[in-house]
């Protein structure tokens, strides 16, 4: 039995503590926005925030998240439903193509901007190189991160509402 705060809500999951957080989120908490891509922390599709830090949920056992705060893509928007500046920038720059990797990309970008509200290209490289996009939207992801960074700093730097 693990107890988590997921997107601001207390949740319990009664499964094998060795189950990766990814599958607990998808199959037991029924939050399918976090994606399975590789299972070995190589692609970033499963990126969520655990206690504020971006992690690859496919490679974090549930036991390691017990008692922690988890934010998924479903919890990035404001309580009022207003999109996070990163999400809005993703729309403005028309980033997604197939869209499958974008939950993870957005989670990585949100964490980046919270830590570095005005990231350099090198910062973006370092924060985003763990997220593969087979549609090759890298140039647009970079542009959208910069667009989000240029929004009011408090909003962009505010990060997720729950992380």
């Amino acid at each position: 039995m693990a107890t988590l705060t997921v997107n601001g809500e207390a949740r319990t999951v009664d499964v094998d503590p060795q189950m990766p957080l990814l599958w607990a989120i998808r199959e037991h908490l029924k939050l399918p926005g976090t994606k399975f891509g590789c299972g070995i922390a190589q692609c970033g599709a499963c990126t969520v925030h655990l206690n504020g830090a971006p992690v690859r949920a496919c490679s974090v056992p549930l036991s390691a998240a017990d008692g922690g705060e988890v934010t998924t893509i479903e919890g990035v928007a404001g309580q009022d439903g207003a999109l996070h500046a990163v999400q809005q920038a993703w729309i403005d720059v028309q980033v997604p193509q197939c869209g499958y990797c974008q939950s993870g990309q957005i989670m990585s970008a949100v964490a980046l901007l919270r830590d570095k509200p005005n990231p350099t290209d090198a910062d973006i490289d370092a924060a985003m190189r763990g997220n593969i996009c087979r549609c090759g939207a890298y140039g647009r992801i970079r542009a959208a991160i910069k667009a989000a960074a240029s929004q009011t700093p408090s909003r962009a730097a505010g990060g997720s509402n729950h992380g």
């Binding site: 998808r26 399918p32 893509i73 990035v76 928007a77 999109l83 028309q94 980033v95 869209g99």
Partner: peptide
Amino acid sequence: AKRLDIPAKVDGSAVFAIDVD
């Protein structure tokens, strides 16, 4: 024109087959 499918691809709500429950 802005792509019609993009809003659902920034908030996790787009349904891929792997998400069908």
